[in-house]
Amino acid sequence: MKETGTTTVKRGMAQMQRGGVIMDVANVEQAKIAENAGAVAVMALERVPSDIRAAGGVARMSDPAMIKAIMAAVTIPVMAKVRIGHIAEARILEAIGVDYIDESEVLTPADDNYHINKNDYKVPFVCGCRDLGEALRRIGEGASMMRTKGEPGTGNIIEAVRHMEKVNEQIGHVKVADPDQLMTISRDLKAPYELVKQVHDLGKLPVVNFAAGGVSTPADAALMMNLGADGIFVGSGIFKSENPAKFAKAIVTATAHPTDYALIAKVSEHLGKPMKGIDISTLTEDQKMADRGI
């Protein structure tokens, strides 16, 4: 008897991605560049986050034809995004057979009360988080992989750094807490008690946690790996740079060797201009994607 869609195979898929880079791609050509550079997966979406910011309006799931064309063009896994709470978009992606669904704050939320019950799906989900409570609520809903939210499309790493540090600091706190304190911690984090207990026992999240939202240079990728990320999502950074193929390869190398600084220096040479970037303090409250779906 073959059992599909189990927690083990859904979480295991993300475990196999560890130490790798997942790249946002908008067409088949970009997907092939990503695969050639050594990406462990691609995220198929029509507009990268910085273009979504620039365009404004409602950002939705991408055209299934575009996603299917990318699935046919590469052998690495293909991920795609759905709006927070949009169960129909998620079922559509599951029907197409994408390998991972990102319930993402980068798109315009469809539901400001409830996230998708991700336990119900055969396809695994990744979700963003800014702190441990948010991570454990998403895992409680069935997320099989976490990532920092960062501040997508800004080319600014500070929010991803904050979110990674916050999660790890809170894990450290839960790990050394007296078992008698766990219910109160669970109340304060607004997180399920069983998952708080699991973090206490394991000393880490029960799923992998990637860095996302603002990674735009090989050094940014190395920084996030050194802060404890299991791997890296790069959105706008690669295909908004001057030489995407070279840039993508350099980020893969920096992620695989995050403490080999001589090597990172070498691959960072003559990469051309990275994306311009945005200072977070210039964003208005409704321009901050990280505050969506908490």
Partner: peptide, 25 residues
């Protein structure tokens, strides 16, 4: 694809007890 990833009991040549196989893509 990932949707078809599965778990199943396996019979290993020369082993008396089954082994739990986790297959991911």
């Amino acid at each position: 694809r990932q949707r078809e990833s599965f778990e199943t009991a396996l019979t290993v040549k020369g082993w008396s007890k089954p082994y739990h196989g986790i297959f991911i893509r």
